[in-house]
Simulated assay, not measured.
Amino acid sequence: MWGTVTALLCLINILPQAQGSSWKDVFAENQRWHGYYYYGTQKYKCSMSIYHVEKEGLGTVYAGFTDPDTSIELEGGHLLNAPNFTIQFSKATVYMATSNRIPPNGEFEITGKLVQSTTGWNYHAHITKPIKNLFSNFTLTTLEDTERMYTVIVQNIVGQYGKTFTMDIKVKQMGRKEPEAAKIVIDTLDLPLTVDQYLQMAHEQQEKLFPTVNLLPGAERLVKHLRNHGIPIATATGSHTQSFQLKTSSHKDLFSLFHHSVLSGDDPECKHGKPAPDCFLLAAQRFPDNPHPSKVLVFEDAPNGVEAAHAAGMQCVWIPLKEINKQTHQHMATLVLDSLEEFKPEMFGLPPFDN
Rank of each mutant, 00 (worst) to 15 (best):
A92P: 07
D289C: 11
H329V: 13
P211W: 12
C270I: 07
I186V: 12
T66W: 01
S250T: 15
H259F: 10
F348S: 01
A125H: 11
G106E: 03
G230D: 00
T146C: 03
F108Y: 05
P277H: 12
K163C: 04
Q285G: 11
N304M: 06
S90K: 14
L193F: 13
A202E: 12
G238P: 07
T248Y: 03
D301E: 01
V94T: 11
G230R: 08
A283I: 05
Q200M: 07
G159E: 10
A92L: 01
I72V: 05
E54A: 01
D278Q: 07
L79C: 05
T60V: 01
T164I: 14
A236I: 09
V26D: 00
Q315C: 10
I231L: 01
V298G: 00
R176K: 14
V154N: 10
A63M: 04
S21T: 15
V61Q: 00
P303K: 14
N133Y: 13
V262R: 00
Y95F: 15
K172I: 04
P320I: 03
R148A: 06
K163T: 09
L254W: 13
R227Y: 09
Q116P: 08
S339Y: 09
T328C: 00
E204N: 14
F244G: 10
Y36D: 03
Y150K: 04
L189I: 08
I14C: 11
C10Y: 14
T111V: 10
V53G: 00
P303T: 11
T166I: 05
